[in-house]
Amino acid sequence: MSSSVEAITVLSSDGDEFKITVSAAKLSKPLNWMLEDVCFSDDCDEVPTIEVNSKTLVKVIEYCEKHAPRANSGASDSDAEELKKWDIEFMKMDVKDILFHILMAANYLHMEGLYDLACQTAADLMKGMTVSQIRKIFHIKNDFSSEEQEQLRRQHPGCSFD
């Protein structure tokens, strides 16, 4: 890649263009591989597509830009504290609407930090939910027969079908 490039342009799956700085893109292994590819040299005008929708990609890039300075240089404890608070604010989002997309994107882009954060956020949101709420957000149908439900209830008094 050309060392003069400071930001790259990528396309979302919806076809929108996004700019991401080189240091931020380094947080993702696949993006990092793309950086090493020739298509980011100055004389190349091919724009790579990232299989993530625009709404999600905005959030992913926001995360990368925030975390890049720390990932690249290390940070003091106070920075780490600040970043933790920022992560909590950043993750205040709707489960169905965007969190699941962030999970998919972080997994696809091999972004360990964001993936762990999104998994933990999803778990924290889910832990107090009822079984019906879980079925609703995951679009799952109850496939137990009434005999099977009865058997499960007997084995695990803590389980519930509501």
């Binding site: 699941f100 999970l103 799952i140 109850n142 439900q149 499960l152 803590g158 389980c159």
Partner: peptide, 29 residues
């Protein structure tokens, strides 16, 4: 509107849940 979460992601989320929630979620499907 709601992506199909692969098994790997579901596992990674569920392993972070307290046991009490997991026992309850045995009944999901």
């Amino acid at each position: 509107d709601n992506p199909f979460l692969p098994h790997e992601i579901i596992t990674n989320v569920l392993k972070r849940l307290p046991v009490k929630s997991l026992i309850r979620f045995l009944c999901v499907c």
